[in-house]
Structures are given as structure tokens and as C-alpha cells.
Design a protein around this nucleic acid. Sequence first.
DNA 1: CGAGCGGTTGATGCGGATCAAGGAGAGTGG
DNA 2: CCACTCTCCTTGATCCGCATCAACCGCTCG
Lengths: 243, 243
Amino acid sequence: MATSCFAERLAKQVPLSDAEKRALIRLEENPRKVKRGGMIQRVNDTVTELFVLREGRVMSFVILPDGSRQILRVYFPGDFIGSASTIYSKAPESLVALSDVIVCPFDKHALRRLLEESPRVAALLFLLSNAERVAMTDRLAALGRTSAKARVAAFLLDMFDRLRVTDDSIVDSFDLKLTQEEIGDSIGLTSVHVNRMIRQMELEGLISRSNGRITLNDMARLEEIGHYTNRLKDMDLDWLPVS
Amino acid sequence: MATSCFAERLAKQVPLSDAEKRALIRLEENPRKVKRGGMIQRVNDTVTELFVLREGRVMSFVILPDGSRQILRVYFPGDFIGSASTIYSKAPESLVALSDVIVCPFDKHALRRLLEESPRVAALLFLLSNAERVAMTDRLAALGRTSAKARVAAFLLDMFDRLRVTDDSIVDSFDLKLTQEEIGDSIGLTSVHVNRMIRQMELEGLISRSNGRITLNDMARLEEIGHYTNRLKDMDLDWLPVS
DNA sequence: CGAGCGGTTGATGCGGATCAAGGAGAGTGG
DNA sequence: CCACTCTCCTTGATCCGCATCAACCGCTCG
């Protein structure tokens, strides 16, 4: 039977009927491989597609006129990408594969069908995009009002918690798979300063590293430094009626 | 007949059937007045309500442990507020009235009914919240990667364009109705530095001011300085079928 | 074996924070 | 009608966190 990475992920948070699972599987019926570094969507291109990320990592970003880059979000397997194209016909952001990936594109008109056939699933997509909005506001507050060290701590914790949603084997460490420059572009710092912060946190024993793998040694302290709260813990998807 | 501020606003961008208008009117059937400075929602409170803002201005914000504030968004009449409570049972952000306002709260369960009875309207809400997400990413890029002057310019242009959606009388000026401290808290600066940037832009003739009213004298140049693009112009809501 | 990328570290500079003081206007109470 | 207060704006002086510039190292890959 066909599988749906997205359904699996949703099912961890809310029960799904078989019909709903089938509807989700249909969204992923056109898997496409993209090599590391490959462009999935270019800013200002005309787009009508959204994606489910099945495997690997993807980032969305914009490039400013002076050449600097702001990474808007890093996506993990099971994430739902590119919802902006439901409302803008020109992509407001670029999408690039951070590793070899499998993405499943589907046309925005498929959402329409989903809305008619599985309104509850459509509603779940709505809720998830609200969760993403809240994640954005958290980072907004971090960039606007917190120190470099706080941002790095919050970034690591966020990545850790999001990876753990789909990967039960994660206990206290994870593969970064991002350069320090990419981290900097996510949280509004230079790679040089990201490096200094990471080295400092390593010296203080908060984290440790071995070839790209980060271990979080003192999560309580990291949460305090980063003013971090795990939003994934208190999501409430249950109020949607089983229809 | 009852009116819906929200329906009026949506109708500017996409045709609505009478049934759909009625559904929107029902969302606004419990208007509530709140005085300037009044708290509409407190962070961490248990909430199940969303709001349509009918009159006045509202801000959403968070306070960090060190007491500093990040304003997440300023809302104008016709805006749809608090979608985070669809997914979190505890409010992730506070809502305060920036002026005397009229808000129309409705329970999140009303969304469910909306989904069943007017799926197209439910879809429109989804699209609008995606637009808000994109607005967030624009500000994220501003905070992460642009100068103080660029942020102020982009902030003014954004306010201008958003106010113009519902107020046709606006040509090149608008009432700020925000203190410089509030602007700073929106774009990650101190009030002192906001003041310096505004005064500088005034000296350069880019803007002018008279008791709280801002006039944009050179929009092209302001857009260049702020790396600003008006997202409201190329929204595409028409692909949703008339059902 | 050379080239390129990513990480590391030091030196220096600058944009915006912080601290401080004063001014204008609006509201308030005597 | 006038002190008084409070909020917000304005401006100068100083400070500091992070950017910038630069050099070098180790690794991987062609």
C-alpha cells in the first residue's frame, strides 16, 4: 500500500479515518527526487504547487538586494511546504534542498478537492499553518529582542524538538546538517559570530559536538538562555469533530 | 441589515455570495467595545475565541523575561485576529487595544460550522492567514538582515498599504497612532533610534509629519530604502471555485 | 596534489543600545 | 487659570555586541 509521510505525522497528533488517510496519500502520489543544493522553487516564479516533504531537509529563504540571505524556515520530513502559493501566484520565497530530498508536489487545486471531500483534513492544514505562524512569531521575537547566544540556543532547541516529532529514536542529540553560515542566515547573525557562540556554549558544557552531531547536555539551562518554549507540546487538535 | 466589516473587506478582493456574506455577518454578531489600552487577551490565558476587528487598532505582542516587548503585529479594521487559538489552548501572545476599539469575538467552534456551511469562506480564511504568514516572513527578513532605516521605511510603507485596503480616501498620508516606542518594539529598535531615523528621513524630505500624521513624499525611494514590496497587490484569490 | 568549502580565531570598526537631560503638549486638580 | 504631572518626543555622549576583515587549518573530492 502507498504511504503518506504526512498522514503518519498527523496521525501522531490526531486520529485519522481511513478516508482521510487516503486523501492524504493522494497528495503524495507524485514523489520527486531533488539533489542537495537543487532549487525546488525560485522566488518570483509563477507557482501553483505546494509540497509535502517526504525525505531530507529543505529551506525557504529570500535574498536581499545587497546579496544577504535570510533563511525563513528549515523544513523536515512530514512538513507541508509552500502554502504561500495558495494566495500569491508569484513565489515570495525560494526553496532549496539542504540534502538529497524527496518532495511530493501537488497543485493547489487539489486543496479544493480536499476541502470538499475531507473538510476535516483541510481544517487540519489550516491549523498546522497557524502553528507555523506562531513559530514565525517566536523567531521574530528572538531576532528583535534577544542576544546572539539566546538565538543560537533557541534555534538548536527548536530543531531538536521538531525532529523529535517524527523520529522517536532521538534522545538528546541530532545531526545538524547545516553550516554555521546557514544557521546565521536563519537567526540574523554572521557565521563568524555563530561559531563564537557555539564554541562558547561548548566550553560551558551546555552542548557537545562530534562531526556535525549536536548533543544537548543541559536543556533546562538552554531553554532559559534562549527564552524557549516548546510549542509542539501543547497543541490541541482534538476539538475538530470526527465527521 | 447587519453589516460585516470583514465581509466588506473580503468583497474587495473576491466576489461573495449572499449566503457567504450572511455567514460572515454571523461571526460578528457579538461586538464588544474595548477602551484604549485595554487587554483583549493575555498571554497564557486559556482561550477558545478568535476576533474580527471592526473598529480601531489592536496589537499582538509578547514580553520577554527581561521585560522587553516584541510587537508581533498591528491589526486594522477588517482584520481577522487570534488564529493561534485554533491550535493552542493557551494564548501564545497578548492582544491590547491601541485605540478605543470594537472587536467581535467568536468561538473557534464557529469555524467548524463555517467549514461545513461555507467551505469557500473557510478556505478564504486559510488563504488570508497564509498572507499573514508571508507578512511575518517579510518582517523576519527585515529584522534579520536590514538596517534601522530600512526597517522604519518598510514599516511605514506596510502600514500605509494595509490601511489603504479599507480606506479609499488615503492618498499619500495616514495617522500613525503609534508611539515611537511602539514602532521600535515592532521592528526591533529602541524608541531613541526610531526617532533618529524618522527625523533623518524627514530632513531628507522622504516623509513629513504634522501632529501624528505621516506623509510619504517619495514612495519610490522609500521602497528602495526599505527593500519593500507590496504583497497586497498581487494576491490571487480567484482560483477558489464559486460553489 | 591542488582547490574549495567549512570551521576557527584574532584585530578592528560601526550601528544601534544605553544613559541622561530637557522640552512640548495634554490632562488634572486646586 | 495656573501649577503639576505624565507621556512622548528630541538630542547629545558614551558604550558594547556583533559585523567585518583577514589569516590559517583540516577535510573532502576531483
